[in-house]
Design a protein around this nucleic acid. Structure first.
Length: 426
RNA sequence: GUGAGCGUAGCUCAGCGGGUAGAGCUCUGGAUUGUGGCUCCAGCGGCCGGGGGUUCAAAUCCCCUCGCUCACCCCA
């Protein structure tokens, strides 16, 4: 477009009311379900010292290496727009000494994240996540409970998705495994693609992400991490599976599932959709028992997940989205100046009675006001004209079946309250 | 950062073997002087992303640029 002033930055976007209908459904449902499991909201700053993310997420990750919105503020302090929230929540947990006392601390958050990446379907530079973090336990039942909660949210939104789980080991057994992997890859070096040759040396776990045909035979024969766990991790992983089985939760063990953030240990999981193209992860999470110490806190066991609101709303069934669309219970149309004043009075009264009531001040003819009411899908229209004014009783019309009749104002109030039990408010 | 495709009315797009723009939907008004949805009629609405070049003539051909989209990488 010609004028640059009326264009948003690449990878950002405006979320308009119509689209937000689906977002609100997701957010409301998430808050409700999270509360059922005892998760309470936390809000942390969107901007943090760069070092928090660099250390917390890992210097070698893509996020830290090339995707952060980092800049110097006016006092030359390096700050970064959060690329994810886990590091922030852990920081807040430590800073506010929430680890004091017993029991598990369960928190959830919701808000925008920023990563400087190239725009793609389901991927933005400013994107939104809802996430949860549970601190203070490494009990495998907690892993299973969190996964169950994530799936319950999907179910309640009628989103079809698949659960993938894996264990990525711990500080003790993962280095041994990755070394094995590296050696196995070296012996097959000749039959690997260029990318995999690079990965073999830098980040051997990543070869499992390769989609190149010629690498598949090699990848298929590589040792699997689940078979190379230490006894503690192996036991933990088996327990998680047992709890999932007990809950009747179907899952797929994805031996190639390795998450891109350094802090994950043991349980790693993803929920993926078949309707999203290349960026198909709706939700990703895992255990990060060592993260607190990495950023200078006490040892804290923890697990959490983040779900992508942008992606989830993309696969939200139309019916769910529609349930969030605003519509007035009552649309008041008027004709003439005296009627206009009266209509305003009526609107005020009905709103006192908690009705959703709409009038339009720009519309002209009755007809155009009616048309607006129809387009907004108003349940009822109240007609205030000269005749109605004269006898102080008004015509109410049901828009779905076109029935209309005359009511006094008390009758109107009573009628509206009787049919607004099936709550519609937003 | 790399590659491919695409930028024409508010939206979805046609027009692209050069000759100064079209459809559907939307919107406004009318048929129905105080009543929506359906139908019919009329109207509003475009520096054809921006800049340069070729030509008598460019939405159409060439170059550059900006933007969008999808994919790679990686992730939500």
């Amino acid at each position: 477009m010609a004028e640059s002033l009326i264009n948003n930055l690449p990878g950002t976007r405006d979320l308009l009311p119509e689209e937000l209908a689906g977002w609100h459904i997701v957010e409301d449902r998430a808050r409700h379900i999270f509360r059922q499991y005892g998760f309470l909201e936390i809000r942390t700053p969107i901007i943090e010292p760069t070092e928090l993310f660099a250390r917390g997420i890992g210097e070698d990750t893509d996020i830290v290496g090339k995707e952060m919105y980092t800049f110097l503020d006016r006092s030359d302090r390096s700050v970064t727009l959060r690329p994810e929230a886990t590091a922030s929540v852990v920081r807040a947990y430590i800073q506010n000494t929430m680890y004091r006392g017993s029991g598990t601390t369960k928190l959830y958050y919701l808000g925008p994240m920023f990563r400087y990446e190239k725009k793609q379907k389901g991927r933005w530079r400013q994107f939104y996540q809802i996430g949860v973090e549970a601190f203070g336990s490494d009990h495998p039942a907690l892993d299973a409970e969190i996964i169950e909660m994530a799936l319950r949210l999907m179910d309640s939104l009628e989103v079809k998705a698949k659960l993938l789980i894996n264990s990525v080991g711990c500080k003790k057994c993962r280095p041994l495994y990755t070394e094995n992997l590296r050696q196995a890859l070296q012996s097959e070096f000749g039959s690997l693609c260029d990318d995999c040759r690079r990965r073999a040396n830098t980040n051997s776990l990543r070869v499992f992400d390769c989609k190149i045909e010629r690498c598949q035979p090699v990848i298929g024969k590589l040792p699997v991490i689940a078979d190379n766990l230490c006894s503690e991790c192996s036991g933990h992983f088996k327990s998680v599976q047992k709890y999932l089985d007990d809950a009747g939760i179907p899952y797929e063990i994805a031996t190639r599932l390795v998450r891109g953030l350094d802090y994950y240990v043991r349980t790693a999981f993803e929920i993926v959709s078949g309707d999203l193209g290349a960026q198909n992860a709706l939700l990703g999470g895992g255990r990060y028992d060592g993260l607190s110490e990495v950023i200078g806190g006490p040892p804290v066991q923890a697990i959490g997940f983040a779900l992508g609101l942008d992606r989830l709303t993309m696969v939200l069934p139309e019916q769910q989205r529609e349930s969030g669309i605003w519509k007035p219970d009552l649309f008041i149309v008027y004709k003439g100046d005296a009627a206009f004043t009266k209509a305003m009075h009526i609107a005020r009264e009905m709103r006192h009675l908690r009705q959703t009531c709409y009038m339009d001040f720009s519309a002209g003819s009755l007809k155009s006001q009616m048309r607006l009411a129809n387009r907004m899908d108003a349940a009822h229209v109240l007609i205030v004209g000269e005749e109605e004014l004269a006898r102080d009783s008004y015509t109410i019309k049901r828009m779905d079946d076109s029935r209309q009749w005359v009511v006094s104002l008390p009758e109107l109030a009573q009628y509206l309250q009787s049919c607004s039990t099936s709550g519609n408010s937003r």
